[in-house]
Design a protein around this nucleic acid. Structure first.
Lengths: 153, 153
DNA sequence: TAAAAGTCTATCGATATTATAGACATATTT
DNA sequence: AAATATGTCTATAATATCGATAGACTTTTA
């Protein structure tokens, strides 16, 4: 389960990725279009900027932009910034792993070993998906519903 | 991230799976061996019994047993019993999906579409792992550490 | 220098999780 | 049938986390 925070982030990033022109977008616009509480979105965007995924410009004509092409920003990165490690168990976290005190032996804990496998799978999937995929699938879905392939318009 | 509840469940189930003889095990023993708060474990075992993974017998000589061979109990099933759906988004839950009210259109939400992929991956992984795998990996890890393959003893 | 924009800090309430306690019911052995 | 060992249920408390909001502050550009 990803947090609502991360979901909001993906929506906002998707919106920025679709926003063809390189023009920065305003927090207020993003909040309205994606129906995200303004102040909450603010905090999310700051985190993303600190995480290197967004750049911002203050002052008139300012706003937020992607810091890289959509195809280079992985979901893994976004999730890591907002939800931190996706480790299924605290003892499997990449940064700051916390060993369970009920576990006598970390390396031979069966639960940990199988969950490590789950973690690897999730990581691989999130690493293989980018904002470009997100945008593309939404576009495909819209096209499919209209009954016309996207490129035939 | 799986809950601590599910982690406790997997440890207890692993313990039962290793417990060679078909004899039932007592809650108190399980709690002590796996260092799980006794009363908390109690609630977990009840849930697992209701979920069909365990059987229990009251009275003297009673206790808990696996309801099926370890190789037939998947992690997916255990996680589902204790943590419910593993859906990364509420709108992707199998049972009782809740659509986000900020989403105008469920079927063309890019975030949902990419997360659906993540969910499928996780489900497939958890479906492919059983308690027997859990036990086996722990055994392998112990053997590997001793520097001797398990079968050479 | 004023307006428009982003940044930071604090706080609140709701909810879920983890944990505990104790009364109650059931089954086995003697 | 009594005694004892065992599981079951309900309620509650402590804690942590998440989602959300408010307001003062800083920076940039026209």
């Amino acid at each position: 389960m990803i947090s609502r925070k991360t979901k909001y982030a993906l929506q906002a990033l998707g919106c920025l990725a679709e926003h063809a022109s390189g023009e920065p977008m305003l927090i207020a616009d993003l909040a309205e279009r994606e129906r995200i509480p303004r102040k909450y979105l603010e905090a999310i965007l700051v985190a993303l900027r600190k995480g290197g995924v967004l750049t911002s410009r203050a002052g008139r004509g300012g706003g937020y932009q992607l810091a890289a092409p959509a195809g280079e920003i992985t979901l893994a990165r976004v999730v890591a910034i907002l939800d931190g490690d996706i480790a299924p168990l605290p003892c499997l976290a990449d940064t700051n792993p916390v060993r369970c005190d009920e576990c006598a032996d970390l390396d031979t804990c069966g639960t940990r070993l199988v969950m490590l496998e789950v973690k690897r799978t999730v990581s691989a999937t999130l690493d293989g998906l980018t904002l470009a995929d997100l945008v593309e699938r939404a576009r495909d879905a819209r096209a499919r519903r209209r009954g016309t392939p996207d490129f035939s318009i």
